[in-house]
C-alpha cells in the first residue's frame, strides 16, 4: 500500500545569527504530486526546499521536524536540481562519467551498466545523440543542455522526491516544458514527487498539483494549484497574481503591490504583509495569523473572508 505522505514538515525554522528566515512552516509532500513553492526573493522558499534534503547553509540553526530524515539518502531517495547548472557539474570530467559515478555511488552495478544508465538518463531529458554527448565536457554543452544534464544527474538513481530549485530560470520556454515533462514522468512511473521552487506562474499553472505560497518566511496559502490560481484567498496571493502582466489588458496599469517584501530581521509587528496590504486592520498589525483551514486549503490571514477577487476584476475590465 502506498503511504499518503512521502515527507512531513512540521514547524520548520531556519535562522542565521538568531534572525529567522524561515519561521515555522508545516506541509506534507505527497506521492505523485508536483508541489510548487512560490514567493518572492527572501520569502524562504529555496531555504525550505533545500532543508528537505538536509542542505541548509553553514552557520544556520534549524528547528522543527522533517520526517523521514532523508538527508543521508541524498542522491538516492531524494535529489536536488539546483538553479545554477554550471556549478552543479564538474568542469574537468565528461558528463557521462559524472552520471555513471553517481549511479555507482548508490548501486552495485558494472561500469558498463552504470554507463548505460547514464546515457539513458541523458536521452530521457532530450539530449540528442546522448551516447556521443556523454563523452563531452560540460563546457561543450549549451546552457539549456547543461541544465538538462543536471536534471539527468538528479533523476539517474530514480529518487522518490526531486527538489528543483528554480530549474527553469535559465531555460527558454521550449526547453522548459520538456524538462518539466521529464520530471513529471518520474511520478507516473514510480509515484515520485516533485517539489518545484519557482516564481513562474505559467509553470505553476501548467505543471503543479498544489501550490505553497510563502511570504517573509511563513506559509501564506497552501492548496490545489488550480483553485488557488483561480481564486486566491490570501491578499498577498491575490496581489501577486493580479500584478502579473498575463492578467492585464494591454498597457492598462498593472495593479502593483506597494512597497517591497521585508528583510528577515526587519519584520513589522503582526502580519508581515500588513504594511503592503490594503485590507490590513488592527488585528493584522497586532498578531501574526496562523494558517487555518479555509475552502479546502490553508490560509494564514485575519482578513481572508474579505480578500477581493482581484483577478475577476482584472478580467472584467479587459472584456
Amino acid at each position: 500500500m502506498e503511504p499518503d505522505v512521502l515527507l512531513s514538515v512540521r514547524d520548520l525554522r531556519i535562522a542565521f545569527d538568531g534572525v529567522e528566515a524561515v519561521r515555522g512552516v508545516s506541509f506534507d509532500v505527497r506521492p505523485r504530486e508536483v508541489l510548487a513553492v512560490v514567493g518572492e526573493s527572501g520569502a524562504g522558499k529555496s531555504l525550505t526546499a533545500r532543508a528537505l534534503l538536509g542542505m541548509v547553509p553553514a552557520g544556520a540553526t534549524t528547528g522543527g521536524t522533517i520526517r523521514p530524515d532523508l538527508s543521508d539518502r541524498r542522491g538516492r531517495r531524494i535529489a536536488l536540481v539546483p538553479q545554477d547548472a554550471l556549478s552543479a557539474l564538474s568542469p574537468v570530467h565528461p558528463v557521462g562519467d559524472q552520471l555513471a559515478a553517481a549511479v555507482r555511488s548508490v548501486a552495485r552495478v558494472s561500469r558498463k551498466e552504470a554507463r548505460a544508465r547514464a546515457v539513458a538518463a541523458l536521452e530521457r531529458v532530450g539530449i540528442p545523440d546522448a551516447a556521443r554527448k556523454a563523452r563531452a565536457y560540460p563546457h561543450e554543452y549549451s546552457g539549456g543542455m547543461r541544465q538538462r544534464a543536471v536534471i539527468a544527474m538528479a533523476t539517474v538513481n530514480e529518487p522518490d522526491i526531486v527538489v528543483a530549485d528554480e530549474p527553469t530560470t535559465a531555460l527558454d520556454e521550449e526547453h522548459r516544458d520538456q524538462v518539466l515533462r521529464v520530471l513529471g514522468e518520474r511520478r507516473e512511473a514510480v509515484g515520485a514527487a516533485l517539489v518545484l521552487v519557482t516564481h513562474d506562474m505559467d509553470v505553476v499553472r501548467e505543471h503543479a498539483d498544489r501550490m505553497l505560497v510563502m511570504y517573509a518566511g511563513r506559509l501564506t496559502e497552501l492548496g490545489p494549484a488550480d483553485e488557488v490560481l483561480a481564486r486566491p484567498r490570501a491578499p498577498y496571493t491575490a496581489g501577486l497574481l493580479a500584478s502579473l502582466p498575463e492578467h492585464a489588458p494591454r498597457r492598462r496599469r498593472l495593479p502593483a503591490l506597494p512597497g517591497t517584501p521585508p528583510a528577515p530581521g526587519a519584520l513589522p509587528p503582526g502580519c508581515a504583509f500588513a504594511p503592503r496590504c490594503s485590507l490590513a486592520a488592527d488585528a493584522c498589525h497586532a498578531t501574526e495569523p496562523e494558517p487555518q483551514q479555509v475552502a479546502g486549503r490553508l490560509v494564514a490571514c485575519h482578513r481572508w473572508a474579505d480578500t477581493p477577487d482581484l483577478l475577476q476584476e482584472a478580467y472584467r475590465a479587459s472584456s
Binding site: E40, S41, P255, L257, T260
Partner: peptide, 14 residues
C-alpha cells in the same frame, strides 16, 4: 525583479 515590484517598474515605463 520580483513580480510585485516588476509591475510598478512596467507602469513607470508606460
Amino acid at each position: 525583479l520580483d513580480p510585485s515590484v516588476r509591475a510598478g517598474v512596467l507602469n513607470l515605463l508606460a
